[in-house]
């Protein structure tokens, strides 16, 4: 990594973060508001009927799922918008003519997108403390899953932003793919609660492994072994990095 232009990485990271802090209220307010709504709807309404899942109070059980939902949405939208905007406004030329390669650009953009997503997820955790008593069994693993997931999905968002040719395309993937995957990934229930066939289908969903590992960090219970969850997120990060390296090497949708 000795050849990496670290000041370049820092410049991109800072540049991206400054956009977040310029609109810090909007950036935080809407995730917090939707979290409150989820607690009211899922926690109060459904939680009234479902007392507990696998020994955990339902209100607390959905906290990791909510954080995951937020972190996936925020990672993908931050990273995809972060790189799409310069493409749209034409300022992308600066990244293409300066001595930064795929490593610097990825570290800068994805690092900033993941940082924002993690910050927002932590704010949601704080918010949830007002509603339910949440005890975190493995706080370090919880943070590790948070950071790894944010990284993986920021990388995915980055690829979507590189690929997108219009704002419609930019929005369609998160809407059509990410949100369904999260809802079907056991954010609000345990995969065991599904009929056997659907449980099998759910196991094909990569998000299930993330939610499961994350929930394990909270409560010590998991749908799949924790090691499998770690491997899943590791594979995702590696695959995305390879794809990004290929995009920059060939200039696909970047250079004529």
């Amino acid at each position: 990594m000795s050849g990496v232009n670290w000041p370049g990485v820092g410049a991109i990271f800072q540049h991206e973060m400054s956009r977040f802090f310029r609109t810090v209220m909007q950036s935080l307010l809407s995730p917090v508001l939707s979290t409150v709504l989820y607690f009211v709807v899922f926690g109060a309404a459904i939680g009234g009927r479902i007392q507990s899942v696998e020994g955990v109070e339902y209100g607390a059980f959905i906290v990791p799922g909510l954080m995951m939902l937020t972190i996936l949405q925020q990672s993908v939208s931050n990273a995809s918008f972060g790189i799409y905007f310069p493409k749209f406004s034409g300022t992308i030329y600066e990244y293409l003519v300066s001595p930064v390669g795929w490593i610097e650009v990825t570290l800068g953009f994805v690092g900033a997108a993941a940082t924002k997503a993690v910050l927002i997820a932590l704010v949601i955790l704080l918010t949830s403390f007002f509603f339910v008593g949440v005890h975190i069994l493995h706080p370090v693993w919880m943070l590790a899953f948070l950071v790894l997931t944010a990284t993986g999905f920021s990388l995915l968002g980055f690829i979507i932003g590189l690929w997108a040719k219009s704002f419609e395309q930019l929005q369609i993937v998160p809407m059509m793919v990410i949100t369904p995957l999260v809802f079907l990934g056991g954010a609000f229930y345990s995969a065991d609660m599904l009929p056997p066939f659907w449980e099998g289908v759910a196991k094909l969903n990569p998000v299930l492994y993330l939610v499961s590992g994350f929930r394990w960090a909270f409560f010590g219970i998991a749908d799949v072994p924790v090691g499998v969850s770690l491997v899943a997120v590791g594979l995702m990060i590696a695959a995305c990095c390879l794809a990004i390296r290929w995009i920059f090497a060939t200039g696909w949708r970047l250079r004529e």
């Binding site: 232009n5 670290w6 000041p7 370049g8 820092g10 410049a11 991109i12 800072q14 540049h15 400054s18 956009r19 310029r22 310069p86 406004s89 034409g90 300022t91 030329y93 600066e94 990244y95 300066s98 001595p99 930064v100």
Partner: peptide, 23 residues
């Protein structure tokens, strides 16, 4: 073609470019 980040100050825009070049 003129391409600039609209919500950035002039001096920050220049500082940013300098950073990209590793300075």
């Amino acid at each position: 073609e003129i391409a600039l980040e609209p919500f950035e100050t002039v001096i920050n825009a220049v500082r940013f470019t300098r950073g990209l070049y590793g300075e």
